[in-house]
């Protein structure tokens, strides 16, 4: 063991610890983000609507190009239709995990799944 530790220079320690920290942050963010709670819909940088994932519904968001339709069903959300030329956010399909987002850049609409833990409101204080 000691023979192997001697193979490391200070820079190696730094890189190895930095790499381990990166892995830990990824795990925390992706695996331990808690259950998905609600959907945050933004339009042009402002919050357009916050909707729970429990109730199935459709949200229609007007943007500069037209209407973006968002569907919430079965605790998942997706962009059903969008006037953007490349349809990237539509092709992304269903999103269901906290931190996942579908972004329709041309129409300035974004849909983000938010977990329970990251939400702080005035009641917490």
């Amino acid at each position: 063991m000691r023979a192997y530790l001697a193979l490391l220079r200070p820079g190696d320690w730094l890189v190895a610890l930095g790499g381990a920290a990166l892995v830990a942050v990824l795990m925390q963010h992706v695996w331990l983000a808690g259950p998905a709670d609600h959907v945050l819909v933004r339009q042009g940088g402002h919050v357009f609507c916050v909707a729970g994932l429990l109730a199935d519904r459709e949200i229609v968001v007007p943007g500069p190009l037209g209407l973006t339709r968002i569907r919430i069903a079965g605790r998942r959300a997706r962009v059903e239709s969008d006037p953007g030329p490349r349809q990237l956010c539509v092709r992304q399909g269903w999103i269901s995990r906290p931190g996942e987002a579908a972004i329709c850049l041309p129409n300035q609409v974004s849909v983000e799944i938010v977990g329970r833990q990251v939400v702080y409101d005035s009641l917490s204080y």
Binding site: L7, L8, R9, P10, G11, D12, L14, V15, A16, G19, L22
Partner: peptide, 18 residues
């Protein structure tokens, strides 16, 4: 491009693997 002697194999290998 980093100065020589800062990193040995491990410091090169981990970023390369990532």
């Amino acid at each position: 491009w980093l100065p020589r002697g800062w990193l040995a194999s491990v410091g090169l290998s981990i970023p390369a693997a990532f």
